[in-house]
């Protein structure tokens, strides 16, 4: 008579790893329910976004103020021309637009990254 070898005893437990420990829940619920904790996170996001926005705006204002200032303070720049077009026209009529676009694109990417980081943090259980 052949007996099947009895398998080794295995301890069967329910794994609690990955389960939500009692008392902890994602911050997104705190946000949703407008608790004090959610408020702290919201403030952080608001401040980060606003800082980025104000950075872009101040770069714009600086750039705009610098354009005429350089043209007026360094009169030789006004005399220079490319393909017969005087430099003030090239700067104010052409160069401004790609610069604005590059700045806008950079902002959009940065702000998407901020939001992605924020989402990662608040969705973590």
């Amino acid at each position: 008579m052949e007996t099947t070898p009895t398998p080794d005893r295995v301890r069967v437990t329910s794994s609690r790893r990955g389960a939500v420990p009692p008392g902890s829940r994602p911050v997104s619920r705190e946000l949703d329910e407008q608790t004090a904790l959610g408020d702290v996170y919201l403030d952080g996001l608001l401040r980060a976004q606003l800082r980025l926005s104000l950075l872009v705006l101040s770069l714009t204002v600086l750039g705009l103020a610098a354009l005429p200032l350089v043209l007026v303070l360094v009169p030789t720049t006004q005399g220079t021309a490319l393909f017969g077009i005087p430099s003030p026209w090239l700067v104010l009529g052409v160069a401004v637009y790609p610069a604005a676009w590059v700045l806008a694109r950079w902002y959009a990417r940065q702000s998407e990254r901020l939001e992605a980081d924020f989402a990662d943090v608040v969705e973590e259980p």
């Binding site: 997104s28 329910e33 608040v122």
Partner: peptide, 19 residues
């Protein structure tokens, strides 16, 4: 105000049932 702010600034991928 707070609920509106949460709605305005929270990215869409975060599930918010109430706001």
């Amino acid at each position: 105000t707070t609920r509106t702010m949460v709605r305005l600034h929270t990215p869409e991928r975060i599930a918010l049932a109430r706001s």
